[in-house]
Nucleic acid binder design. Sequence first.
DNA 1: GTTCCGCATGAATCGATAG
DNA 2: ACTATCGATTCATGCGGAA
Lengths: 286, 286
Amino acid sequence: MDFLDKIISGDCEQVLKELPSNSIDLIFTSPPYADQRKNTYGGVKPDEYVDWFLPKAAELLRVLKPSGTFVLNIKERVVNGERHTYVIDLILQMRKQGWLWTEEFMWHKKNSYPGKWPNRFRDSWERLLQFNKHRAFKMNQDAVMVPVGDWAKDRLANLSETDKTRDESRVASGFGKNVSNWVGRDQVYPNNVIHMATECSNRNHSAAFPLDLPLWFVKLFTDVDDVVLDPFCGSGTTAVAAVQLKRHYVGIDISDEYCQIARGRLPQTQPRLLEPPEVYEPRPTE
Amino acid sequence: MDFLDKIISGDCEQVLKELPSNSIDLIFTSPPYADQRKNTYGGVKPDEYVDWFLPKAAELLRVLKPSGTFVLNIKERVVNGERHTYVIDLILQMRKQGWLWTEEFMWHKKNSYPGKWPNRFRDSWERLLQFNKHRAFKMNQDAVMVPVGDWAKDRLANLSETDKTRDESRVASGFGKNVSNWVGRDQVYPNNVIHMATECSNRNHSAAFPLDLPLWFVKLFTDVDDVVLDPFCGSGTTAVAAVQLKRHYVGIDISDEYCQIARGRLPQTQPRLLEPPEVYEPRPTE
DNA sequence: GTTCCGCATGAATCGATAG
DNA sequence: ACTATCGATTCATGCGGAA
């Protein structure tokens, strides 16, 4: 098991070949989108994206346990005024590889990139595609239910005026601070819409997605000591989530610089002692 | 122009053939989803859905003006534990017909049906696929501007018509010092996530979507006196939206019973005298 | 200690300009 | 003509300094 808890530098298509089959419980990743990250991934062109991704998906299928889950965060670009079809093409091709397309979660990004264009509005959502090897995959729904404790009551009583107005817009999906929804209820089940801001202007390392995103999926699809893989790990946000929840991680990135950043973040990351209320509040930054 | 402002009973594939080419400004519809409405549409099987829909899409392409827009509200069913692919197959096939897939709005249904399943959460979003004939389609972005800040959008979006006007003053006065924040920045453009409840305020007629949904798209993609078509009009919610905004409508439904209901609703529907409370007045400056 | 305000910035897109 | 690069546009968020 010497592949566990490492950040490995290299092209994931090659690195994955070193991993044993049926060894991973959850793959959570956000690969470089088409035409993005040109300096590291060479800016894969939309028309070539499916061919670029499929061999990697084949390896991911091999290393995933039969009970495991693959969550893929992706969004198609606009090309010549149209939504490009590479994402839905990819879904169809991955099904031919043997993947089951079990679900599509929706990430509603509250603070999406600004911009005004003559014929479209700001794009403020992304897909979180769920794939599985078998219909009977592991899912701990109870792990993402929201228990109402004393801290919540205190939190409710102490909400500042600005917090109240700002939080009024937040939606109950297990995220954010919509504490008012919890009053009078013991537990809340989330739905398949995830309402979360992209992280910006934090002092830490930038990440394509907020830490809460992998935290939620790690809790939902794995148990303690399971193995979480991110083949495009970037600054290691997925690995941080795994460590905090006492899961093992495997991170791969083609960029040495990103791997260094990730390796620097992880030793500072402590497992949480309890299933924490921090998920529902901004965490202290250190 | 004797096809205007009518609810026509019949299979839209046949009825559409009677309509002149390039005569419709907006098509807004929510066709029966696969396996739904068995008694009227015969419960189209998921595997047959694309073949069932494509000839209708071809006619829709013909009747739509070059500047027009087609908004298709649809969501794929779960079949054998997987999301079925008929919706994304349909996108690919419609592109082959000549449609441009310009955008995918997401409708976040705030109050989706409750339910609990072993391996999925509640499905609380649907696709609103936008198709066009040409890149240069008509779009009145200013018609759907929203107040700055999600808090205001969500607060005001849920209010009844009468409450909306009443609340104008309440908002202006109730937030005291905060108001100065918004001076000079009253309205912004929305994004492509539509946050609306499924609930229909009209108790007499059930509808697949709330009236606010076609209202929003009619304002966005048509001008006064333009023509709005719904080839699966059901109880006529799209037509009601058109009348309220002084657009012409054409409604088609295969069910005589639904057509009767729609015809009964429309005479009671009054055009709004003003561009209504959805257009928020600038807040007072102090 | 609060509350309030200024400011940087983030998986973007279009259209114009340049090679 | 076709591709590549660049500037203008624009808003929710959270931090930090100020009141």
